[in-house]
Write a protein that binds this DNA or RNA. Structure first.
Lengths: 122, 122
DNA sequence: TCCCTCCATAAGCAAAGACTTATGGAGGAG
DNA sequence: CTCCTCCATAAGTCTTTGCTTATGGAGGGA
């Protein structure tokens, strides 16, 4: 949970998150997607994924030799909560409900997720 | 509007935003508050305020020789919107309403030092 | 077994950025 | 006008960090 905004501060990492918003993906797919946009090496992407992991913004699931990355609501909810609290000081109680709602939405989408294009504003 | 998350990526700048969440403050007060925490020079704070300004996270109001800084919902709403869109792709239409709601809350709080707030995201 | 693919870590480098001191303009008080 | 306070910008230093190439472990297929 440390360094959530530090992790979000990099455009490449935000692009990774946007990619994963389309659903769970193996590290190799993330590398390929980023390289389709700008030249970047595999280790560089791996390092970015580590930062996102340490920040609690993504989580990994190992399957054979592949590592599947997906968004993690732990960090995302933390970031949203901090921003919300900035303007709405006592929104603390409503936060868990909001987190639950987005979690449900994410899980639903993850089921039918496919190799769509994902190019959100970064 | 460019560089919202880059601006949020620095802990000192986030501390400035937290300070301003208590209400509008002159630059000098921000400097004093930060120096009460860790040694930092006045120009350093001024540079941080510039970054926040360029990111649309704060706005300035000149009064005599003082510059009063306050939170700006332009950047804050943009950040929240990006995070929300990451997990809830279809929330695009509801976003403006949310921004309006927090804007109203902010304005109300600015009038009175302390206020109570309820509901939203039922 | 050997090899090949997938991915993470190590080490070094170069660009970005956060900090410093020095300076100067703008506005109020005397 | 003169001085003094408040604040922003300039210039330079030093740390941070994002990138590279090199390497090696883990797992699957032959």
């Amino acid at each position: 949970m440390t360094g959530v905004f530090e992790a979000l501060g990099d455009a490449t990492r935000r692009h990774v998150l946007a990619l994963l918003s389309a659903g769970e993906q193996p590290a190799g797919a993330v590398v390929a997607a980023l390289q389709a946009r700008a030249p970047i090496s595999q280790p560089a992407v791996s390092q970015h994924l580590k930062v996102l992991r340490d920040a609690g913004l993504v989580r990994v699931r190992a399957e054979g030799t592949r590592r599947f990355y997906a968004l993690d609501d732990a960090g995302l909810a933390a970031a949203r909560a901090w921003l919300t609290q900035l303007t709405d000081p006592l929104q603390g109680a409503a936060q868990p409900l909001d987190a639950l709602a987005t979690e449900l939405a994410r899980g639903r989408r993850a089921d039918r997720a496919r190799t769509d294009r994902a190019d959100r504003t970064a």
